[in-house]
């Protein structure tokens, strides 16, 4: 343990990981949706910083560009176009059953990823020299091309699923929101679901 603490990289890791864990924790416990999203930004920024620590500049800045710069901004856009609450929200409090389910899923996911990382890398030493962008491109499009394509199919499925969940069929009988546009109709559905 003493040996672990004397290395500068490990201190940098602690300095990055602590805000990351805190941000992740607060993003699920916060009582305001906008605050949750902003805590998620802290978590993602810290993960980008971890990639920088590993010398993977390209991946780090891609995380900033794609996740912080686009995905989270879309989240914020979605929240603001539907409702943008200031202060606390009471309807965000979940029942104990929901919390238990969430805890089980996240615990299982954590265990899965831990096992996968440990069996995958084991005792491999991290070589801290910068990774070249061309190497990343080559490994992504040569060795890992099939997982890469599978991931994009999964994303496509998620996209279609999202549309199906959010959009109510205009032809559905007794639907008063049929004349509204897509975004507004999604809003109405969400409100109706909670009522």
């Amino acid at each position: 343990m003493n040996d672990w603490l004397t290395q500068a990289e490990n201190w940098a890791f602690i300095l990055i990981a602590l805000p990351m864990v805190l941000g992740a924790w607060r993003s699920v416990t916060s009582r305001n949706v906008v605050h949750s999203v902003l805590f998620l930004v802290i978590t993602l920024a810290a993960s980008a910083a971890l990639f920088l620590l590993l010398g993977a500049e390209f991946v780090a800045w891609s995380v900033v560009l794609v996740y912080i710069g686009a995905v989270i901004v879309l989240f914020l856009f979605g929240i603001m176009i539907t409702r943008a609450p200031l202060g606390m929200e009471t309807e965000l409090s979940h029942s104990n059953q929901t919390k238990l389910g969430a805890a089980l899923v996240s615990g299982a996911l954590f265990a899965l990823i831990t096992v996968a990382v440990i069996t995958g890398f084991g005792e491999t030493e991290i070589v801290s020299n910068p990774t070249r962008t061309s190497e990343i491109g080559q490994s992504m499009f040569e060795r890992f091309v099939i997982p890469f394509e599978v991931v994009s199919v999964v994303l496509l499925a998620a996209l279609i699923g999202g549309i199906v969940l959010a959009r109510r069929d205009p032809a559905e009988p007794g639907d008063s929101s049929s004349s509204l546009g897509g975004a507004q109709s999604a809003h109405v559905t969400a409100e109706g679901g909670e009522a």
């Binding site: 390209f58 560009l65 901004v73 914020l76």
Partner: peptide, 20 residues
């Protein structure tokens, strides 16, 4: 920076946070 262009794109995408 080796990835200067990516850095520029990433940081300019952060500008929207101020407005939002």
């Amino acid at each position: 920076l080796n990835i200067g262009l990516l850095y520029i794109l990433a940081l300019s995408s952060l500008a929207v946070y101020a407005v939002v």
